[in-house]
Computed example of a mutant assay.
Amino acid sequence: MRHRNSTIAYVIFALVAIGILFTVLTRPGTLIIPLLVFGSIFLLYKYPPSRWRSRSKSFSPPRFSSSKTKRRNATFRVINGSKDSSDEPPKYH
């Protein structure tokens, strides 16, 4: 069974190769636009625009502050709601 699936794959790949070769020989202009699109996508994937901007700026922010400042912990307050204090489910259930 495994040999049968690989044979089918080889036949499909051969037909695809024949179709591409036939298209290139008869109408080569039809492949220029897809090649340009896939080439530009590949170039943008390989060299993204964010890399272009980062080379002009070599400044990186410091990871740790030089001065040892003490942080103040946030204070949390409990806001009393209008719910009754019992842990029973609501009356409308």
Rank of each mutant, 00 (worst) to 15 (best):
M1G: 13
R2W: 14
R2L: 15
H3Y: 14
H3W: 13
R4G: 04
R4K: 13
R4H: 15
S6Q: 15
T7W: 11
T7G: 14
I8E: 12
I8C: 08
I8Y: 07
Y10E: 14
Y10Q: 13
Y10F: 13
I12K: 01
F13G: 03
F13L: 15
F13N: 09
A14W: 08
L15Q: 04
A17N: 03
I18C: 04
I18A: 10
I20E: 03
I20D: 01
L21M: 12
L21S: 12
F22K: 10
F22E: 10
F22I: 09
F22T: 12
T23G: 06
T23M: 15
V24W: 14
V24T: 10
L25F: 13
L25W: 11
L25M: 14
T26K: 11
T26P: 01
R27A: 15
P28E: 05
P28T: 03
G29W: 13
T30A: 14
I32D: 02
P34Q: 00
P34I: 01
L36E: 06
L36D: 02
L36F: 09
F38N: 01
F38H: 02
F38S: 00
G39D: 00
I41E: 06
I41T: 02
L43W: 05
L43F: 05
L44K: 05
Y45F: 09
Y45C: 02
Y45E: 04
K46C: 03
Y47C: 00
Y47L: 05
Y47S: 01
Y47T: 01
P49Q: 02
S50G: 01
R51K: 09
W52F: 12
R53V: 06
R53N: 06
S54D: 03
S54T: 02
R55T: 02
R55W: 02
R55A: 01
S56M: 10
S56F: 13
K57E: 06
K57V: 06
S58K: 08
S58H: 05
S58P: 01
F59S: 02
F59W: 12
S60V: 12
S60K: 08
P61D: 06
P62S: 04
P62D: 03
R63H: 10
F64I: 13
F64W: 12
F64K: 11
F64M: 11
S65V: 06
S66P: 02
S66R: 09
S66N: 05
K68I: 11
K68V: 10
T69Q: 10
T69Y: 07
T69W: 07
T69R: 11
K70M: 12
R71F: 15
R71L: 15
R72L: 15
N73K: 13
N73I: 09
A74G: 01
A74I: 10
T75K: 12
T75D: 08
F76M: 05
F76H: 05
R77V: 11
R77E: 11
R77N: 06
V78T: 04
V78F: 11
V78C: 06
V78A: 05
I79E: 02
I79R: 02
N80Y: 04
G81P: 00
S82F: 11
S82R: 08
K83Y: 09
D84S: 06
D84V: 03
D84L: 07
S85G: 07
S85N: 09
S85R: 10
S85E: 13
S86I: 07
S86M: 08
D87H: 07
D87Q: 08
D87P: 04
P89F: 10
P89H: 06
K91Q: 14
K91Y: 14
K91F: 15
K91V: 14
H93I: 14
